[in-house]
Design a protein around this nucleic acid. Structure first.
Lengths: 254, 254
DNA sequence: GAGTGGTCTAGACCACTGG
DNA sequence: CAGTGGTCTAGACCACTCC
């Protein structure tokens, strides 16, 4: 009864059929019904089962292949990939989601949240004029109630006003923007580097001065409002690693 | 005359039409003929120009969209993305290629290359038994003839024997395997963390003891031979950052 | 040989952007 | 409104895998 098989597609809904079908297939995998190495229904079977064309089936499968969940094998079938030890594979997610994916509980402590004048660098990054007022949030990030990162974000003024309407201590900021204000995130560009802890950072993160930190500089872009955030996060290197899956392009040694 | 326009597709060749078409479009971009924001030919125009179906055109464009080169805008057209400040977007490339993409010259100094007994961790990572003989390479990586990273790699015995047939000081190992021995890389899983330099590392990298290093642990997989490498690279944080583009999935807050 | 995914065609209707 | 990309169909032939 709880089997995913019972899902039906909505042929007149607003969600494309191939997205719906991809969701059904993803559910099979995430519910553990299909495990690593399992060969899923053939494209012909899916066509008949869900009454869609082969193109639609292939588009659905392609989505999951891009996500790293499925893998096509010509002449054999389409099989489920190895367990996702590497969860972060180029997906833009918030901190909470990231931490939960690692099996830990996430929380935050908002140390500061106020409007400040943008210096030259912040201004050019956010695409505003120098000395313009921008919203700054400064948060301590916790995993399992232990400090794991310290995060400093700058938001354009209009985004800041939206955020201020909510409880900034507990909320997931990306969720606020997407769910409450329909500002849909598009992509982010991230730069990862290594630094050592200053006395100030060491105190907040409860580590020794000079301990290694993994630093992330991120620029987040929305579909409708352009750049909505510049964020610098410093993670305790002893508690956090960044994981990524790199794909070889078919152009190979291009 | 040097215009990319003169390219023709080979309709009977072994390379799929959509791959050929994608290569043509990519060439337009890489040769600077189409710059950021430029709207490329419409799908209908490409159909007529190259005498292929719309599906084929869309497959070609999809490849480049996935690579981050193009972006579709419904009702407007398909436009060229911003310059690729962020070159590394989930592609598996070698060190040399990576450094060249940053506009620097890459070289290497092979400090050690010999067979050693696999300890427990190396053995389980490479999928061999403990104490099995594996090939170890230890290299100093240079960019612009200055040390930038120190790299320790472990390869299964049979891969090691192949590598030993070549000049290990100058060669790009991935190129040797792919071009000379037809071992095609598939994907890699990478873990990024931060550490501080030991006295040994500091001496090789010409930095202070305790300076921050960006550490990459990579497991590389080939299409035919499974895992072919475990590699640990430590980069000088003052000379190297890792850049990545994160995409928001359409499932959004899933 | 039978069945799988890989490529490709011709054509259709829809949703969105712009004048 | 005309033109763009977004979705979808029905059908075809090929390359690969396995028996």
């Amino acid at each position: 009864m709880n089997s995913v098989q019972s899902f039906q597609l909505d042929y007149n809904g607003y969600i494309p059929l191939y997205v719906q079908l991809a969701n059904v297939l993803r559910a099979h995998i995430e519910m553990g019904e299909w495990t690593a190495g399992h060969i899923i229904s053939t494209e012909t079977q899916l066509m008949n089962q869900y009454q869609v064309s082969r193109t639609t089936v292939r588009e659905a499968v392609s989505l999951l292949v891009n996500e790293g969940l499925l893998k096509r094998k010509q002449g054999k079938g389409t099989l489920v990939c190895k367990p996702k030890v590497f969860e972060t594979l180029g997906q833009l997610t918030g901190f909470s989601q990231e931490i939960r994916a690692r099996g830990m509980t996430a929380s935050a402590l908002c140390l500061q949240a106020n409007f400040v004048k943008a210096n030259k660098y912040i201004a050019s990054t956010l695409g505003v004029l120098e000395d313009t007022s921008v919203f700054r949030t400064y948060r301590l990030r916790l995993a399992e109630d232990e400090p794991i990162a310290i995060e400093e974000s700058y938001w354009p003024q209009h985004i800041g006003r939206l955020l201020l309407q909510h409880d900034l201590n507990t909320a997931a900021y990306y969720d606020i923007l997407e769910l409450e204000h329909h500002i849909i995130l598009s992509y982010a560009e991230e730069q990862i580097s290594a630094v050592v802890a200053s006395t100030h950072e060491a105190r907040h993160l409860q580590i020794a001065v000079g301990a290694p930190l993994l630093q992330m500089d991120r620029i987040t872009t929305s579909t409708s409002h352009g750049i909505i955030e510049y964020c610098q996060t410093k993670y305790r290197a002893d508690r956090y690693n960044y994981r990524i899956r790199l794909q070889r392009l078919n152009g190979q040694s291009r």
